[in-house]
Amino acid sequence: MTPRELVLATVRRSLGVTGAEATRRSEVAARLAGHPPGVVPERGQLEPAGRLDLFARMVKAAAGTVERVADMAEIPAAVAAFLRGHNLPLAIRHGGDPLLSSAPWKLAGTLEIRQGASDGADLAAVSHAFAAVAETGTLVLTSGADNPTTLNFLPDVHIVVVDACDVVSDFESAMARLRSRFGAGVMPRAVNMITGPSRSADIEQTLILGAHGPRKLHVIVVGKP
């Protein structure tokens, strides 16, 4: 018996089943295909404007910062202002994301722009979130050339752009969007759900920001829902 067969056989013996029972198989298949929702909190069930306010409130509660801009044309200035406000060099890195690439970066003057995955040398990165969850102020980012995963973790400052239309009420809505974008049962290599900047409370339970990931998380919400 291979280890795999041995483990499965012991599981089945303990459960008193053979694994061939049609009712069990159809029950499991139905759950995987139907993915029924469970208890979805009221908290996020708001009209679009209220949902955006909740999202901003929850990001701040998680020690992140939020600002809103009218359209992508305002992004370069907002990014530059944030960096200046924190005495950071005017340099960012982003991936090949079409929305981010469409921003008129030249308007931000001396802002230096690098593209691609991070090698650990960048102080600030800009990503475009796939979605955001109002319920907890959580950003949902997907891996790939457009928004490399390393940008979420290596730089000191992470600036995340999210379209107001992509701010959803709850996790279930975000999961539904992943399914419709990538297909049922299919996921990108990494889905990073991020709620605030990195932190640790491992020393005498004192909460300190900036453990291994970004010390600052700044969210820019673009447009109207």
Partner: peptide, 24 residues
């Protein structure tokens, strides 16, 4: 666990680096 609504990083990983992935 900690009384947070969500921990900071919840990551779903599925398989190795894809052909067009720059990292992973």
């Amino acid at each position: 666990a900690t009384g947070q609504d969500m921990s900071v990083y919840t990551t779903l990983s599925t398989g190795p680096r894809r052909p067009d992935d720059p990292d992973g």
